[in-house]
Amino acid sequence: MFYGSSAIFVQAAGACWYLFGIQRSLKCLREKCRDTHGCDLRLLACKDSIYYGTSSMVSDRARWAWAENRPARSTCLEDSNNYDYGAYKWTVQLVKTNSRLEKTLFPIFWGLMTLSTFGNLESTTEWLEIVFNIIVLTSGLLLVTMLIGNIKVFLHATTSKKQAMQLKMRNIEWWMRKRQLPQGFRQRVRNYERQRWAAMRGVDECEMISNLPEGLRRDIKYHLCLDLVKQVPLFQHMDDLVLENICDRVKSLIFTKGEVITREGDPVQRMLFVVRGHLQSSQFLRDNVKSCCMLGPGNFSGDELLSWCLKRPFIERLPPSSSTLITLETTEAFGLEAEDVKYVTTL
């Protein structure tokens, strides 16, 4: 928003500067015309334009003679130092050019330069020029002040998150030293915190969503999780109310590279719906043959919980995992705990 408004104001300032400069050049030419014998102000009209410096024929001899007027040309068009142009000195070179590109880009350049550096504007005593210069310089000051304010807000937001991260890491380091954890465990904890920071930039997604009104929270989680949840065949034919309850109960999880999420034979704690990253699912078959497959975004694991919930008579003991899950890279996923799976399958 700020940069868009700044660009518009730069173009507006450049356009006004160009128009006022044209008027100053016209004023100079009028003064020279009055001082020239046989010159009429109608020769300055734009009906039949003359581009100074060209050799195209003009039917009106008076206009041709005016075009060849050396004193007027040298004073008003060739050198800006021969006339008091004030802040519009640079427009002299635009008056005698026929290039639309130059007439478009040069005022934009002037506006950008003046507003970003507060300008170094010369001025005459003409009141309109003084007012224009005051507006341009004041606007440049305001834009720079707003830019500094935005940078300050950005730096504050960034540094505050980094400071919170550093404080958290100091607390974690103190706790690991107090508990005398081995260096291998300490390094894994550090890697987890760094990768979690890199993935979320210090934003606690669960806390942020939980602070929203209940209806808005459910709608957002429904939007984020619906496509993933529908990958499960059992959930595809459930009504919207059940799907909303499923989406409302999932939690955002992050796993670091090389982390063992579950081992084959361990109780299955939750269903996982992969959002970003890849997992390796492996299991041992007969004769110690190892079978591996990769789970990517849109895939899920933990479907053993579905059979466990639907089995009758119901057994409280969690089912064993049929495979080992290992992260191949930093992975983001939504998790649905075993108790939540049990709840939604009984709706």
Rank of each mutant, 00 (worst) to 15 (best):
S210E: 05
T346Q: 14
L41N: 03
L29A: 07
V203A: 07
L181C: 02
G140M: 05
R177C: 06
G4V: 15
Y18D: 05
D227N: 15
R179T: 13
D40H: 09
R218A: 11
L228Y: 15
L121C: 01
A62D: 14
P313C: 13
D79E: 01
L318V: 10
A45L: 09
T256W: 04
L142V: 12
S301L: 10
I209P: 01
W90R: 01
W175I: 13
L216S: 02
N82W: 01
D35Y: 06
R186M: 12
F106Q: 10
K47S: 05
S323V: 14
D48G: 00
M165P: 04
C39E: 02
F255E: 03
A198E: 15
H237P: 01
R70N: 03
L253D: 04
K27R: 06
R100W: 08
R186H: 00
S59H: 09
R263V: 06
R190H: 15
Y343G: 00
E337Q: 13
E264Q: 15
F2L: 13
I220Y: 12
L181K: 01
G258E: 08
Q280F: 00
T114K: 06
I261L: 15
I172F: 07
Q11F: 14
G277K: 02
N245W: 11
L167T: 10
R24T: 14
